[in-house]
Design a protein around this nucleic acid. Structure first.
Lengths: 155, 155
DNA sequence: CGATGCGGTCTCTTTTCGAGACCGACGCTA
DNA sequence: TAGCGTCGGTCTCGAAAAGAGACCGCATCG
């Protein structure tokens, strides 16, 4: 139960990871971005145990990342990405970039192409002020309002 | 043992996730990017069980993400990010962006600022050809060389 | 009627995790 | 030199999570 408490820490990396950081969750979301919406499709695509899938889907719904609804064209249930879930895409693309670079000896298994040209989707870290590309070395962490609020609340 | 076999799939999201996708690994890397290098520092910062930490550090070293070495100024061991590990930074920053957006009601706990100006580091998904920003809707997956090689090898 | 597909539940075994004691090596300092 | 603290690392054991696979009610379709 202590691991869950990491979500209380004032850190915007730790908090999402408590939700997303396990064996299956990001794989499920990857499938969701690939258009998968149905329980059995997730299950057979990933080979995840059904009870595990049920638990993970429920958790993602609880967090508002997926929305469960009845399909319009049928009776079955559907799990669709919410806006909040949709915004996770850069995380998966950043993983993809790294996977292409370091775990794809034969080249990218899949190109994620821009619909309107031949280019490929890539993630870049940049300064939102001057627009310069950045790496970890260019970053200087600084306390923000969320940290101050946390300190005030904790005393 | 079946879960590990997901790494054989020709997918540049799945393969990294088999390495990174667990409760602690990305948190350990987050600490590493924050400058943590020593066993006990990781342990006390995260509250991770020692045996777990030992296992995870070993795995990251095996994958060439961390490098273990003796500290120059002392006798103790150090775990430092390799180039390969360093390139994981955009993943953590993408998580950070999402965390700031959805799990930081009081504002960002930490600003990750550009050293040279007041701007903040942000991740953006863009086309590497035309430079246009992209979302999941703009992406069209297409088979790449790694998939063809995989199919050839599997028959 | 039976067969199939659907999301979901239950049980049982195996694996992993967590907590904390314990270890030898090293460096201090009295 | 004996005592103490710190370092990375190891071991044990009870608790939690994961894996497999059967099972369920419901609906559709032939």
């Amino acid at each position: 139960m202590r691991y869950e408490q990491l979500a209380d820490l004032p850190c915007s990396i730790t908090r999402p990871l408590v939700v997303l950081g396990d064996r299956w969750t990001l794989l499920i979301l990857k499938e969701a971005f690939a258009g998968v919406r149905r329980f059995n499709a997730f299950q057979s695509n990933l080979g995840i145990p059904r009870s595990r899938l049920q638990d993970r889907l429920g958790r993602l719904v609880d967090h508002g990342i997926l929305v469960r609804q009845q399909a319009v064209d049928g009776d079955h249930a559907e799990y669709r990405l919410s806006r909040k879930g949709h915004d996770l895409y850069p995380i998966l693309m950043a993983i993809k970039d790294w996977g292409d670079a370091y775990m794809a000896p034969d080249g990218p298994p899949v190109h994620y192409r821009h619909r309107e040209c031949t280019g490929e989707a890539r993630v870049a870290l940049a300064c939102d002020c001057c627009g310069e590309p950045m790496t970890a070395h260019d970053v200087l962490p600084e306390a923000g309002p969320g940290l101050l609020a946390h300190v005030d609340a904790q005393g």
